[in-house]
């Protein structure tokens, strides 16, 4: 993996109002490949709205998104997926009544060859799902079980694995560990770091600064719909980030100028 200078995604001036409530007031955000980027801030800071505009779940009122240097329009989830932007939603967007392969391939089922294109190739989906779980070191002995029967960590892993399966370039996670225990949280972050090391750009929302400092490369703070500041993890401290979250103001970053992408690990 070579060092990547330009961000893969640049959001500029993203604005969104719900009725009279200004959820986003012209937010800029860059995402780099090979980096885990944490989005933090109080409730109603606009974090979820911002990632939803990138995921195609919400249409911004104004602002531009460029992907690999080209300006793109993301009007629904399919547009985002077509670009390689995959999203893992907070409420685990899995169909509980289906098994693991069905969930991994939800909406993108592998079908038989024409003229049987309406028929599912369940065998192929099962084999690929098994291979995927093995590659990501996710331990689910029986993939034919309904997802409902699985632990929160396993379910979150399936939701994340689904992104990888379709060659995601950018993965967005909305509080991926909010509902998980300590051990499961560790596993999910290991998976997130694994995806970063495989070259994906990761954007995640978290309320737990310990997790953020342990697992992320860059931290961006938002408050009431505006960007407060963006820091690389090694340039800042938890105290500074907490101050930014609470006060909504930032001292100039110690390393001057635009944030630079990290060198790739390994």
């Amino acid at each position: 993996m070579t060092e990547t200078k330009a961000p893969i995604v640049s959001m500029r001036g993203i604005t969104k109002a719900y009725g009279g409530v200004q959820a986003l007031k012209g937010v800029d955000l860059d995402i780099y490949l090979g980096e885990v980027h944490a989005l933090v801030g109080d409730n109603a800071a606009g974090k979820s709205s911002l990632i939803k505009t990138l995921a195609g779940a919400v249409r911004p009122d104004a602002g531009t998104i460029t992907f690999e240097g080209r300006e793109v329009r993301i009007e629904d989830p399919r547009d985002a997926k077509a670009l390689g932007i995959e999203t893992v939603y907070q409420d685990l967007a899995l169909a509980d009544n289906l098994d693991v392969p069905a969930n991994v391939f939800l909406g993108r089922e592998i079908t038989r060859r024409p003229p049987f294109g309406w028929f599912l190739d369940n065998r192929a989906m099962e084999e690929r799902a098994r291979g995927l779980l093995a590659r990501l070191k996710i331990n689910i002995p029986n993939v034919r079980l309904k997802v409902r029967a699985m632990s929160g960590g396993q379910r979150q892993s399936i939701a994340i694995a689904r992104c990888v399966c379709f060659n995601a370039r950018v993965i967005i996670l909305d509080e991926p560990t909010a509902a998980l225990g300590v051990q499961e949280t560790g596993k999910v972050y290991a998976l997130i770091r694994e995806m970063r090391d495989q070259g994906c750009g990761v954007l995640l929302i978290s309320h737990n600064l310990n997790h953020v400092f342990e697992n992320c490369d860059r931290i961006t703070v938002m408050k009431t719909g505006s960007l407060v500041g963006s820091r690389r993890v090694e340039e800042t401290t938890q105290d500074e980030v907490v101050k930014m979250i609470v006060s909504g103001t930032a001292d100039p970053p110690r390393a001057a100028g635009r944030p630079q992408p990290l060198a790739q690990p390994g």
């Binding site: 779940a57 989830p77 399919r78 997926k81 999203t87 939603y89 409420d91 967007a93 899995l94 169909a95 509980d96 009544n97 289906l98 069905a102 939800l106 909406g107 993108r108």
Partner: peptide, 14 residues
């Protein structure tokens, strides 16, 4: 089955 199990997931899956 997907729509019956979780309509939001079905929609967000594309």
């Amino acid at each position: 089955y997907a729509i019956g199990g979780n309509p939001a997931a079905a929609r967000l899956s594309g």
